[in-house]
C-alpha cells in the first residue's frame, strides 16, 4: 500500500511530468489560455494516459516480449497511443460535442503529447508490474492535470495584468511556468530516487 502511495506522490508532485521532467509542454502552453478548456483537456489526457499505460503494458508483456521483438517497442507504443486517442476522440464527440468543439485540434494532438509516450516507455524501463504501471500513468496524468488547471487560472489573471509589451503572451507564460517549476522543487526529497 505504501508503495502505491509513493508512486502517486512521486508522479504527481516530486517528479511532476510538466514542471520537473519537462514533458508535455506543448498542451501545457497551448491549451492553458482558458480554464474551461484546460479542465476538458485535463480529463481527456487523464483518460488517455491511464488507458494507454495499461494497453502498452499489455502489448509489451504479451506480444513484444514473448515474440522477442522488443526493438519494435517505440513504434508499437505510438500505434497503441494513436488508437487510444482515436477512441477517446470518438467518446468525447458522442458524449460532449461542445467540449469536442472547444478542444478542437488539441484532442488528436494528445497523440503527440510526449508525456504519453514518455509514461509508456518509463513504465517498461522501470519494470513496473501491471497495477503499478496503471497507477504510474494515472499519477502522471493527475500531476499534468493539476498544473495545467492551476496554470490556466493564473494565465486568465495575467492576461488582465499590465505586463510590459515585450513580455506579453507566451513570454510571460513561460516565465510563469519557470517560477512554478521553482516552487515545485520544494517537493524534492519527499520521495527518494
Amino acid at each position: 500500500m505504501a508503495e502505491y502511495l509513493l508512486i502517486l506522490v512521486s508522479t504527481v508532485l516530486v517528479n511532476n511530468f510538466v514542471l520537473v521532467k519537462f514533458l508535455g509542454l506543448c498542451p501545457f502552453m497551448g491549451v492553458s489560455r482558458k480554464l474551461e478548456t484546460a479542465i476538458g483537456m485535463a480529463f481527456a489526457t487523464t483518460f488517455v494516459l491511464t488507458l494507454s499505460s495499461i494497453c502498452s503494458y499489455l502489448v509489451n508483456h504479451f506480444i513484444l516480449v514473448p515474440l522477442d521483438i522488443t526493438y519494435l517497442r517505440t513504434i508499437s507504443f505510438i500505434l497503441v497511443i494513436a488508437v487510444v486517442v482515436q477512441f477517446t476522440e470518438m467518446v468525447v464527440h458522442k458524449t460532449s460535442p461542445l467540449l469536442y468543439q472547444v478542444l478542437g485540434i488539441f484532442l488528436p494532438l494528445i497523440t503527440t503529447n510526449c508525456a504519453v509516450l514518455g509514461v509508456a516507455l518509463l513504465n517498461v524501463q522501470q519494470e513496473l508490474d501491471f497495477f503499478s504501471s496503471a497507477l504510474y500513468g494515472f499519477g502522471a496524468a493527475v500531476g499534468f492535470s493539476l498544473v495545467l488547471i492551476l496554470f490556466a487560472a493564473m494565465r486568465e489573471h495575467i492576461v488582465a495584468a499590465d505586463v510590459p509589451l515585450a513580455f506579453r503572451g507566451p513570454a510571460i507564460a513561460l516565465i510563469t511556468a519557470g517560477l512554478m517549476s521553482m516552487a515545485f522543487m520544494g517537493f524534492s526529497g519527499l520521495v527518494r530516487g
Binding site: 495575467i158 495584468a161 499590465d162 505586463v163 510590459p164 513580455f167 510571460i172 516565465i175
Partner: peptide, 8 residues
C-alpha cells in the same frame, strides 16, 4: 515588474 508591477 515583468508582471506589471504592484498589484499584478
Amino acid at each position: 515588474h515583468l508582471y506589471g508591477g504592484l498589484g499584478h
